[in-house]
Computed example of a mutant assay.
Amino acid sequence: MSSNSDSETYSLYPYHPSHVLPIVFAVLIGISLVMHIYQNFRYKFWTVTFWMSWGGTVFTVGWIARCISSYQTSNVNLYIVQTVFIYAGPPIYSASAYNILGRLLHYLPMHAPLHPNRVTIFFVYLGAAVESLTASGAARMATNTDSLSRYKSGGTLVSTALLLQAVIEAMVVSVIALVHYRASRAAHRPPPNVRKLCITLYGTSFLIIFRCICRAVESFTLYASIESCKQGDCSPILTHEWYLYSFEAAPMVLFTYWLNIMHPGRLLPRQKTRYLDLDCKTERLGPGWIDKRSLWQTVIDPFDMSGMISSKPNHESFWLWPEKWPAVVDGSFAQGTASNIQNSRSKPNERSESGHKMLPSQSNP
């Protein structure tokens, strides 16, 4: 917050905010948003990557609001909007990665360390907690610039949210690494689509972790120098705007474009029941993940620790009986011959090992 003299306009920013950079990033994020929407329609992949579109909308609105706010630096409402929306965008983006991981586990059920559906629920619920803390803290900071105690309390919420999100992303990376390790140790090496998706999820998760660490450093620096900052002697981290663009905007732009280039709709089937056989080539229509426990038990114990302790897993290993499940004949994502695009060219129906007619993948899940 600054006000150099009575003749100058009071500013909520400790620097002169750029008029150009916010609109540049708004355009970059907006272009990526349009690309995500187009690809979701093209691949019919809304159920998995809807959060990319929602996060892109929130993040774009935040940068547009910041651009307007840079011309009206004393407008509290604009300052609140840009602060809350810019902070809120990344946690929403992360929800898409959780959905993609869940769909990958459906595709590789033999390597899944926990119920694929519970992966999404578990991480999305944690992500919702992060989003709530972030929005609440950012709003409190933006609305209490003159109240040191309330400003600090808002910063505490934001810092907690940043650290929690970093921990969640580390857990996501751990699950990805475990699946990748199991697939690499199997009799057949993981196919290109699995390797590309794992690398994509590693990269996007590390971008989120990098963003959280840098934002946390900014937050803790604010605590350390808040008294001197009130007197106009702030740390360079707080008085130079490029930190925001380097450690908040840039990583998220890379995140969203990375998922555009490696859109999961190109690499995974839409159907949850379509899985990769143990030969890492054939894809079959199975029964989906079957867990013998009740819903609340799978939510409380998503990793099936009780089954691991008793050496009696509570899920059915349906992939061990491939002859029971028909192979799809419209190509294979593992071999790069299948597509989620409607009316894509399909191969003629054939016969499965058991003599039953092989089923083509359905156009609509």
Rank of each mutant, 00 (worst) to 15 (best):
V58N: 03
S11V: 02
Q362G: 11
V27Q: 03
K44A: 01
S74V: 09
V194I: 14
E169R: 01
A142Y: 02
G288M: 10
S344E: 10
R211K: 01
R195D: 15
I29T: 12
T204V: 14
I300H: 14
F50V: 01
L114M: 14
M358Q: 13
A249Q: 02
T49Q: 01
V124N: 01
I237E: 13
T120Y: 06
S53Y: 06
I23Y: 12
S225K: 08
L267I: 07
Y243E: 02
V48A: 00
V61P: 08
I226F: 12
L295W: 15
P269L: 06
K292C: 08
H263T: 05
Q362N: 10
G288Q: 03
A88F: 00
Y223M: 11
L276F: 07
I237P: 06
N364F: 09
W63C: 02
L157P: 00
P113Q: 09
E131Y: 00
I208G: 00
P90D: 12
K196D: 11
M308W: 00
C229F: 09
S184A: 14
V84Y: 05
A327G: 06
K272V: 12
P191N: 07
E218F: 12
A186Y: 04
P360I: 09
P116F: 07
H111C: 11
F247V: 10
A166F: 12
G137V: 14
D6G: 11
T73H: 03
G30F: 12
P360M: 10
V253G: 00
T60R: 02
Y10D: 01
V158L: 13
S219E: 14
S311Q: 14
L108C: 04
S219W: 04
F25M: 07
